[in-house]
């Protein structure tokens, strides 16, 4: 068992990259990148393609769910013997669960045979965005505080 088990360095970098991609493509679902010239920057025209950013967002979700599965099982099998979750980890888990949960309902809504009520549709759409914004804010605070996910058990 390596000292830097959770998440393993490669997984951690991959997780951060996917989160960045999810944030960009998530915000790209609003028509802002074209309006504010960001999609005019060479190489970023794809940010104004709603279908493309939507696919990338879905692919990001697939990879993120795989990382969640990997990390949860890895922690339960080995990590928890030596590490415990920090308080900030619990906050992250709650927010990530809320983001993933509302995201799952968004995906369900987009399937051909599933229709939610207008009120619930609006709740899911807006809460997904709000949870993500809270998560980014909280993560920035944890970054400044240098609070990680795990700490060594005493």
């Amino acid at each position: 068992m390596q000292e830097d088990f959770f998440p393993e360095r490669l997984i951690k970098r991959f997780y951060l990259f996917i989160l960045f991609l999810m944030s960009i493509t998530g915000f790209g679902q609003m028509p802002i990148f074209k309006r504010y010239y960001i999609a005019d920057i060479p190489g970023l025209a794809w940010l104004a393609n709603f279908y493309f950013t939507h696919y990338v967002h879905y692919i990001g979700a697939i990879l993120l769910f795989a990382i969640f599965g990997y990390c949860i099982v890895g922690y339960l099998l080995v990590g928890r013997q030596r590490f415990r979750l920090t308080g900030s980890a619990y906050i992250r888990i709650v927010l990530l669960t809320a983001i993933a949960g509302t995201g799952i309902f968004r995906v369900l809504k987009n399937l051909p045979d599933i229709v939610f009520s207008p009120g619930f549709t609006m709740f899911v759409d807006i809460s997904h965005l709000i949870f993500m914004m809270i998560f980014l804010l909280v993560t920035a605070v944890f970054l400044v505080m240098k609070t990680g996910w795990l700490t060594l058990r005493q």
Partner: peptide
Amino acid sequence: APVAGAVAAV
């Protein structure tokens, strides 16, 4: 996806 991640971890 999560099942594949879990299997990889095992």
